[in-house]
């Protein structure tokens, strides 16, 4: 390697600075992870007398997790996983179809419609919560999985991502398939979708995280304990009288860990591109 010479001092400064930054980012998470493994009584004790005990617990215990496991948190995880999974599956199909239509066809009002799509993801969700809730109520969906899933399926940002990707596929692919006798649906499922794994991965992740992190809408639309999702269940651990800090930290930890899994699974698609090769 022909890296240019760097003075050791500059290197030390650089890595020193980066280490401090990394520490600042990781520290609260590490503290959170460790705190969840402490006995209730000990959680805040070492903070007041700052020392190495602040970070290293004197005793590790899974009590907090056991308590969670026996409460209704597992149901919340199940709810969240189900809601997020369904949103990802339907969301990818619906948004990819919409994006494909915008990319492949010319139809009256296309630009106006696409503008609305773009506006839809610039609009803060809070602005449409009330009308949306009224609508969901009118459908008789309050406190149901539909209320949690359906409004999140169509996603302007994801439609935009798919449209951009499909528009970047040379039209010759579509046209060659048409001359070969393929229907548009066939072209969508057999040509466009197989080429768009990176976009599918990114979109799936966005849809998943949006659902996994969502709090406001679930509180509004499905606050019954049977439909509580993870974030709602976590928030239940906070109240004015008495805080179950151990339970709060443990549930937060689980939410973070589970939320990371999809990302770890599909991150390799981020750098991968399948487009190369078919065109000159």
């Amino acid at each position: 390697m022909d890296t240019p010479f760097r003075s050791p001092l500059a290197l030390m400064l650089r890595y020193g600075l980066l280490s401090i930054l990394a520490f600042m980012v990781v520290c609260p998470l590490a503290w959170l992870a460790l705190a969840s493994l402490r006995p209730q009584a000990e959680i805040f004790q070492p903070v007041s007398e700052f020392g190495w005990h602040t970070f290293i617990p004197s005793r590790l215990t899974l009590d907090n997790y056991r308590a969670l496991w026996n409460g209704d948190f597992p149901l919340a995880v199940k709810n969240s996983v189900f809601v997020a999974f369904m949103t990802v599956v339907f969301g990818i199909v619906v948004n990819a179809l919409a994006g494909f239509a915008f990319a492949a066809f010319d139809f009256r009002g296309k630009n106006l419609l696409f503008l609305l799509v773009i506006i839809s993801f610039m609009m803060p969700f809070e602005a449409i919560v009330l009308p949306l809730y009224v609508m969901i109520r009118a459908f008789g969906w309050a406190n149901s999985y539909q209320a949690l899933i359906v409004p999140e399926i169509a996603n302007g940002m994801v439609i935009f991502l798919f449209r951009q990707f499909f528009a970047s596929i040379p039209r010759d692919f579509y046209e060659a398939a048409r001359v070969d006798g393929a229907s548009w649906l066939y072209i969508f499922t057999r040509i466009a979708m197989p080429l768009s794994w990176p976009t599918i991965a990114t979109s799936g992740l966005m849809l998943f995280l949006a659902q996994w992190d969502s709090f406001f809408w679930p509180v509004v639309a499905a606050s019954a304990p049977d439909y509580a999702v993870v974030q709602v269940a976590i928030a239940r651990n906070i109240n004015f009288e008495q805080n179950d800090w151990g339970g709060l930290f443990a549930s937060t930890n689980i939410a973070i860990l589970l939320g990371t899994i999809p990302f770890l699974l599909i991150q390799r698609f981020y750098v991968r591109t399948l487009i190369s090769g078919g065109i000159k």
Partner: peptide, 13 residues
Amino acid sequence: VAMVFQNYALYPH
């Protein structure tokens, strides 16, 4: 009819 395209349009996958 069959058509051969300028950039071939071979399906890369």
